[in-house]
């Protein structure tokens, strides 16, 4: 049976009728048309579906759409503001960190969360740890880590949007 839920995705509220068994990934991709988040395994093994739920990297394929009511969901579509790329997006582009690009949205969301944690610029090992739930088959990760390192070294982290007092 479908129930009406209200989802806060990328700062916008969507009212949709969903069955409880609909995953957040299916809701995003097939109900809301937000196809940036990808599906590579549908069971937690690859990280392609990573989105932020209340600022934490979360696998949309193992999250029920009904369960994110009252939580803030952010997807790759939220990163570029008014057609200006997020610094991480720009760095991925400049470093050639996206080859086929299929893992990229998920990896970006894990990286965004890492940089939003603030503190000292993360070193390569911390970056690898933060991205260790995301598989990429194309790049060997080298350029991905380069790109994140580059942004980490060159930006002061602003913290997640909507958070005050930095």
């Amino acid at each position: 049976m479908k129930t009406l839920v209200s989802l806060d995705v990328n700062g916008r509220t969507y009212e949709i009728a969903v069955s409880p068994e609909l995953t957040l990934l299916e809701a995003l991709r097939y109900e809301l048309g937000l196809t940036g988040s990808k599906q590579g395994c549908d069971k937690g093994d690859c990280g392609a579906c990573t989105v932020l739920v209340d600022d934490r990297p979360t696998l949309a394929c193992l999250t029920l759409a009904v369960a994110v009511q009252g939580r803030k969901v952010r997807t790759v579509e939220s990163l570029a503001q008014a057609n200006v790329l997020h610094p991480l997006q720009d760095a991925f582009d400049q470093h050639g960190a996206a080859q086929c690009g299929f893992c990229t949205p998920g990896i970006l969301m894990s990286a965004v969360s890492l940089l939003e944690q603030g503190g000292d610029a993360p070193d390569r090992l911390s970056i690898k740890k933060a991205l260790s739930g995301n598989l990429c088959r194309c790049t060997g990760y080298t350029k991905i880590i380069d790109a994140v390192e580059d942004v980490a070294a060159n930006t002061s982290s602003p913290g997640p949007p909507g958070h005050t007092g930095s």
Binding site: G44, G47, T58, T63, S110, K129, G133
Partner: peptide, 9 residues
Amino acid sequence: VASPQIRNM
């Protein structure tokens, strides 16, 4: 356990 995302969940 698992991966960063799964530990968040």
